Computed example of a mutant assay.
Amino acid sequence: MSDKRAGDAANTAVKNDRATTKTDSVGRPGVEIDEKPPTDAPPTGIAALIAKIMALKPVRVLLRFGASGGEIMASGMSFQAVFAIFAGIWVGFSIFGIVLAGNPELMDAVIGQLSNAIPGLIGDEGAIKPEALAEARILGWTGAIALIGLVLTAVGWLASTRDSIRRLFKLDPPTTNFALLKLKDFGLAIAFGIAIILSSAVSLISNQGLSLAFDLLGIDTRSPFAGVVGWLVGVLVVFAFDTLVLAAAFRVLSGVKIPMRRLLAGAAIGGAALGVLKILGSQLLGGATSNPLLASFAVIIGIMIFLNLVCRVILIAATWIAVGMEDAGLDPRSLTPEQMEVERQKRVAEARDTLVAAERERLQAAIATEHGLARRRLRKKLERLDSLDHAEAVKLVEKG
């Protein structure tokens, strides 16, 4: 009798559209998908054009950016960036001011680098006067306490950036100890400050090298050609710096496992976009200052708008990498083969549960409309389905 029931269970197939629920060789509800030729013709005309546009990677990147809350995350990051930048500059010049004060050319190069990075931040008409930076020092207990508060403010932006990037990669927040994360952020902030000084030194050396090369070639350093070459070298130095900083943010700060080729490609796209923003930054600031209602704090408004655009570029570049990895089937997490197998089995179990639930609902609806022998057969099918589903659930619990 048991063999007969097993045979009946194995041969029972209840078709619901394209899904057929039956049991496999181990008594587990299985699903067969009947292959049916597509009945809908491929889209043509405007529909085909829209489908092609929606399939483009830039469009999918922007859609994912919006669906992941990129607008809100960029706004929050830019709000924190305003305080983090002023705090970071004060802390940086307080720590490195003694070194920079002994080299006026390097000091001017660093100030120029910061001024180019954020238009309107430093200058005679900017939010920060250059003379104030030269006088920034940590004096006494009050200065030390202020330094701690400013450091926490500066590293807070790094924490927001890390969480935002991980959200775009569809990853959970890191499980690392809170104190270790803050220590890591502080180290990255110090490294970022050192990188600014190094890039300023490289820019200074490259300018001096260009001047020497022009003198050897007999080219007037004040000629338009020399000016264009010097501008291009400066742009390339800034582009390389921005690319390296973005690569560090995407890989080191967020802790996302990204192949080097995709990492550098996404960081380069972000670096190029940031370069365009910096070139157009003075125009943006001029638009803010031209509004008479904002004249009293136009510089701060311009900086906030600029930082909002910068944060958008950072997150969109991260989204570009995330979509590319997803297209290539790359998981940003560091999973062992055993963990990947567990996740595969979990997805299979979830799909099975979904189909079993749909089949159960269909049988229950059919029972409510049938009578007599047909209703009894449907009840037996439903009982077998519930029995097999329960046995599979017990097996999964014991396995887990």
Rank of each mutant, 00 (worst) to 15 (best):
S68Q: 12
Q80T: 07
G88Q: 04
P259R: 10
T21M: 13
L277R: 02
K52E: 13
G302C: 02
G372C: 04
I111E: 14
I85N: 01
L307I: 03
A393G: 10
S200W: 05
V310W: 09
V356S: 08
A101G: 15
D24K: 12
R375C: 04
E32A: 09
S387A: 12
I197L: 15
V252T: 14
L246M: 15
Q80K: 14
A51Y: 03
P130C: 05
A240F: 10
E359R: 15
G275A: 08
V235N: 05
R375T: 02
G255L: 07
L139H: 07
L246Q: 08
R352F: 00
L335M: 14
I85K: 00
S75T: 13
P43L: 08
I111G: 09
F79M: 15
I305E: 00
T20F: 13
I194M: 15
L171W: 09
F65K: 03
T289R: 15
G143D: 04
P332A: 02
L253F: 07
T142H: 11
P130G: 05
I219A: 07
G66N: 12
A357V: 00
S68E: 14
K22S: 14
D3F: 07
A6V: 09
E359Q: 15
P332D: 00
T153P: 02
A349P: 03
A391M: 11
E341Y: 03
